[in-house]
Structures are given as structure tokens and as C-alpha cells.
Amino acid sequence: MSVSEAEAELSEDERAGLELIRQSGGIHQSDFWKELDVSSRKGSRIAEALASTGLIEREDTVYNGHNTYYLQPAAKDLDFALLMAGDMLSPFIGEEEINANSDAFSQWLMNLAYDDY
């Protein structure tokens, strides 16, 4: 199932939850259900359902001294075009180390500045 199909099949609560996670960029599950104004049990079910579709990532974490989950949008929702300057991709792809003074990176930065005009 593709991402858009998975999204079309969400319940209203799940859709609201997904929206909240996307808008916040990342939120702890213990804040998530409060913001959504649902019970913690229901909040947990929503987060679980979203994680199982791959629309969000759900990781164990400790927050304010208790165990909870950190919920964030799936990486595939990121704007990968931010790796581009003009038609040039980040020069660090395929490189072990990043070198902020390399010629390739200077070229990338020139493209970035030029693209801005």
C-alpha cells in the first residue's frame, strides 16, 4: 500500500493525530494525547496505528522521568530538495567525512547563493 493510500484509510482521530505530529515536527506521546484531548489509552492506540502504517516513527524514550514514546513524522515526508543547490546535490553524499572547506562544497554554496537571486 502506498503512503497516500494509507493516509486515505485513516480514521478521523488518526488523521488529527497525524496532523498534530506533522505540525509539531515531533512530540512525546504523553503530550500527544493531552493535546489531542483524548484519553491516554486512546492516544496510545492512535500512535500505534499510525506507526504501523509507516506514516510516523515511534521510539522509546524517557521524558520527565517516565517512559514514553517520541512520535515524529516519517523520514519520507521530509523535503529532500533541501539537499539541492541549483541542480547540484549535497557533495557529502557517498563521502565518509564532511569537509566544510572542500572545493565541491564551495561550488555547492556558490550555486546556493546564485539560486537566490
Partner: peptide, 12 residues
């Protein structure tokens, strides 16, 4: 690509 975005951010 997410990791590459973090690396690019650090370099800039």
C-alpha cells in the same frame, strides 16, 4: 537522506 540533511546542516 535524512542523515545526509543532518550532515549538510553541520557543514553549512
Amino acid at each position: 537522506l535524512k542523515e545526509e540533511m543532518h550532515r549538510l546542516l553541520e557543514a553549512i
